[in-house]
Amino acid sequence: MSRPLDTLSADLFTPLVGPGFALRGADGTALPVSLVRCDEHPRATMPGHARTAFSLDFTCPAADVPPFTGGTFLLWHEALGEIGPLYVERILPAGYAPGLAVFQIVFA
């Protein structure tokens, strides 16, 4: 069972930075990814919202990625189970090592 999205926070993901995640598509495909960044964005938080906005950046070898830019996925990790569906966007790999695909999930 998926966690309610409004209960997710950066504190939940920060200790899990590293490998062990997967993005699962509706067609059943799974893309193993590593969580490389978990950043809070206080200035982007909606007034009165209980949680601080945050973003998650994931990477994997670009050669392993089918051609797409973004879409709806379930995020999976052994400690968390499945979360989602979530909108995942492939972003430019600026600041990351060559040959990596970078994906971002934003929680406002």
Rank of each mutant, 00 (worst) to 15 (best):
L5T: 11
D6S: 11
D6A: 14
T7A: 13
L8H: 06
A10K: 02
L12D: 09
G18T: 06
G18S: 08
G20E: 00
G20N: 10
F21D: 04
A22I: 00
A22F: 07
G25L: 07
G28F: 10
T29A: 15
L31K: 01
S34E: 14
L35D: 01
E40Y: 00
E40M: 12
P42F: 06
A44T: 05
M46P: 02
F54V: 10
S55H: 00
L56R: 02
L56W: 02
D57P: 01
T59I: 03
C60E: 02
A63C: 02
V65E: 09
P66M: 09
P67A: 14
T69Y: 11
G70L: 11
G70F: 07
G70A: 09
G71H: 11
G71W: 09
G71T: 05
L74T: 03
L74A: 13
L75V: 14
H77P: 13
E78I: 12
A79N: 13
G84V: 08
E89I: 08
I91P: 07
A94H: 09
Y96M: 05
Y96N: 07
P98A: 14
L100Y: 01
A101H: 04
A101I: 01
V102F: 00
F103I: 07
I105V: 15
F107A: 03
A108C: 05
